[in-house]
Write a protein that binds this DNA or RNA. Structure first.
Lengths: 156, 156
DNA sequence: AAGAAAGTGAAAACGATTATCAGTATCGAC
DNA sequence: GTCGATACTGATAATCGTTTTCACTTTCTT
């Protein structure tokens, strides 16, 4: 975790940017997260400890973290971006629970291989992809899945 | 195509809503599209013929078309929604060209089967999914793919 | 034809994100 | 350490796509 902070600071230095107190606090807060955070969410986390940091600075720092290769930005169709650590983990996709919103990561070599096939067949040269599965997680299935078929779940 | 218009009007009637001139024009324009349209795009198509229709009404009518089961709304991560016919076509996914923006549809039973497996393994009960592949289409590959490795393509 | 109820468009409101700008902090040079 | 160029900050305003509000108009049932 201090590794990453150091990497970030090295990146800033390399790019001729400054290592400010705000950036450090925001980066720390980001590296301390375990799941996906929105800018707003990170803002709240930081704000709790240090009320003087503005949401704008959080956005700017998240952009820097992306530039530094330490964060990935994800769009899950709900209109706001979520950020996750880029670090060591390799490519993965996501399963999102339509009830509790929990996001689970997974990777499947087979799926990716098939994608490659399909894409090649259509003459495309693939650059990246985005696979999102939506459904009820185990907990939510157990809690709500007893009654008669519930189809309208609220997430379009 | 008149089928669909009829279906839409029947839906409106069933729901106690009114079949207005604007709705008919917008629905016609929508059914006349062959690819994915944005609200703005549909607005422009309609506006060309009938300047009195507001963008707001287009949004409202698109929502009705969704409610009627005649349109699907898609989010491709660029911040705006694209709409496609829901009609006969069954489930499919999309390949988006990162250069020209062209959207190609495809379906793969194998990929979906694998998805099911993965999801089940993780205790999820799948409801729907979203798979988007991004890359250069044949035309754009041919046009631009000659030089040295180009990695920064502009679509984050 | 009449009226209740829904529909319309303009403009304002929205939520997430980005740009502007005046004041502030950082950091390399000395 | 101090100085100063330069980047950074935060408040506010602007943007963009979309939705709400509201006064007025249309539809549709009787």
């Amino acid at each position: 975790m201090h590794d990453k902070l150091l990497q970030f600071q090295q990146y800033l230095h390399r790019a001729g940017l400054k290592a400010t107190r705000q950036r450090e606090l925001i980066a720390r807060a980001f590296f301390a997260t375990t799941t996906h955070v929105s800018a707003e969410g990170l803002y709240r986390r930081v704000g709790g400890r240090h009320p003087r940091i503005g949401l704008v600075t959080v956005y700017r720092t998240l952009k820097l973290l992306k530039d530094a290769g330490l964060a990935h930005e994800r769009q899950f169709g709900d209109g706001r971006a979520l950020f996750e650590h880029a670090s060591s983990e390799r490519h993965h996709d996501h399963i999102i629970c339509t009830e509790c919103g929990k996001i689970t990561e997974f990777a499947s070599v087979e799926i990716e291989a098939l994608q490659e096939q399909v894409v090649r067949r259509l003459g495309f040269h693939i650059q990246y992809h985005k696979l999102e599965l939506y459904g009820r997680c185990r907990d939510c299935s157990a809690a709500a899945g007893k009654g008669p078929g519930v189809h309208a779940i609220g997430v379009g």
